[in-house]
């Protein structure tokens, strides 16, 4: 009886949230059917004619399909590689600082870029990297080198995208890890020190295991938007010159789907991305089970 009563409390407190999800997430999901239709504004969701898989085939058989898939995956994977590890490294470094005011100041500085929108960041990049007036190119010229058109050369755009994203988000991403680090029992460090462990070993045996679960959760969650690759940023940085290496799924959809009011196509692509992300997340969770870090 006590078991049931305990669970009754739990069900009660999760009911409001569940209601929210059902009403605000699942009801609008009914609108996903327009991916299988040819959505007409005046006919609405129910009366628009069926189109079967047409929208999906248009996307997947499109001329640029493999290009945008490759760009999206490559950019996402690079971002994952650097963008996942950098906040951890930063958090670990900050964690070692003994001077409280220094730690807080540096931490505040590092998350500042998160608040500067991509529009501003891009404007700054133009001011720095423009072929003629850009500061960096002026320095290059003054030192006798050739100028580089960073913003328009396809070879430079992916490194620029990844680097600027890492720079912008690392500080912010470290916040969560710092919160997790503060939850590690200091007596564990004490014990390790008494056992003669060096700083490196302490980090390996105490710190990292302490935030291991957070790492796994965040990794799985990051996989859930692996096909997003950062629309806001790429929308600013992609241009006709570097499009071959910077055009991602979302920018393609923006041109083909939204600018031409082809809502059905946009929805179909959304479903495509969601299905792949779903498979990845379920797979990742299974793997995480082995480390006891699964989400469900």
């Amino acid at each position: 009886m006590r078991n049931l009563k305990k669970h009754r409390f739990m069900y009660m407190i999760l009911l409001p949230g569940l209601l929210y999800f059902v009403v605000y997430k699942y009801v609008p999901m009914l609108g996903l059917i327009i991916a299988f239709k040819d959505y007409k504004l005046m006919l609405g969701f129910w009366d628009s004619p069926w189109a079967g898989w047409h929208n999906f085939t248009q996307f997947m058989q499109g001329v640029y399909f493999w290009d945008i898939m490759a760009n999206t995956l490559l950019i996402s994977l690079y971002k994952l590689l650097f963008g996942f590890t950098a906040p951890i490294v930063l958090a670990l470094m900050l964690n070692e600082v003994r001077t409280e005011w220094f730690k807080r100041s540096v931490q505040t500085l590092t998350y500042l870029p998160h608040f500067v929108s991509w529009v501003i960041v891009y404007g700054l990049m133009v001011a720095l990297l423009s072929p003629g007036d850009g500061l960096v190119n002026q320095l290059l010229q003054a030192s006798g080198f050739q100028t580089i058109a960073f913003l328009t050369e396809p070879e430079w755009i992916r490194p620029l995208i990844v680097t600027s994203d890492v720079w912008k988000e690392t500080g912010w991403g470290a916040i969560l890890y710092l919160a997790a680090l503060s939850g590690i029992d200091p007596s564990l460090y004490e014990a390790a020190r008494i056992d003669g462990a060096s700083k490196g070993r302490q980090i390996w045996h105490v710190t990292l295991p302490g935030i291991r679960n957070v790492m796994i959760i965040l990794l799985i969650l990051k996989l859930s938007n692996i096909l997003d690759a950062g629309f806001d940023q790429i929308f600013m940085m992609a241009n006709v010159f570097n499009l071959e290496k910077a055009d991602i799924i979302d920018t393609w959809v923006y041109r083909e789907g939204l600018e031409r009011m082809n809502v059905s196509l946009a929805t179909a692509v959304g479903i495509f991305k969601s299905v792949i992300a779903f498979v990845l997340v379920v797979g990742a969770n299974k793997v995480a089970k082995r480390f006891d870090g699964q989400i469900w």
């Binding site: 499109g62 001329v63 640029y64 006709v240 010159f241 071959e244 041109r255 083909e256 600018e259 031409r260």
Partner: peptide, 25 residues
Amino acid sequence: VPDPDDRLYADRQKYVRESLLRFMT
């Protein structure tokens, strides 16, 4: 005006613009 049934419209436009700029540069 663009043909609403023209599924390749945006891609064609992209190819034209990219190509012209490649010729220009």
